[in-house]
């Protein structure tokens, strides 16, 4: 499988990365080189093989249902590029 320029632009938009025409052209070549490299996985017979879901077999740890966190809005917004009264501010979203 290989990607064309339109696919690269679509993927860049999905990933929310602005790309210039030059970027997209360069990326098309790079992505095709990588996709060409991973193509060889097609040789492997994976019939009946379970995909890996956890590399270390163990039971998932669970938390007790108690409130142990929160009440630190100042910390939460401390690094925000734009905030007001502990809200994060973003350019207006239109539904």
């Amino acid at each position: 499988m290989s990607v064309d320029l339109a696919t690269v632009k679509r993927v860049a938009h999905l990933a929310r990365i602005a790309v210039s025409e030059d970027d997209a052209n360069r990326m098309t070549g790079e992505l095709n080189a990588i996709l060409g490299f991973v193509e060889q996985l097609g040789e492997v017979d994976v019939t009946g093989v379970e995909p890996m879901t956890s590399v270390t077999p163990m039971a998932m740890k669970k938390r007790e249902d108690i409130v142990t966190d929160g009440s630190k809005a100042d910390d939460i917004v401390a690094n925000a590029p734009n905030s007001d009264r502990n809200f994060f501010l973003v350019p207006k979203v239109v539904e």
Partner: peptide, 15 residues
């Protein structure tokens, strides 16, 4: 571990 209560100040129930 943040609380699920309703109607608190902005980002108060946030970990």
């Amino acid at each position: 571990g943040a609380s699920t209560t309703f109607g608190n100040a902005a980002n108060a129930n946030v970990s």
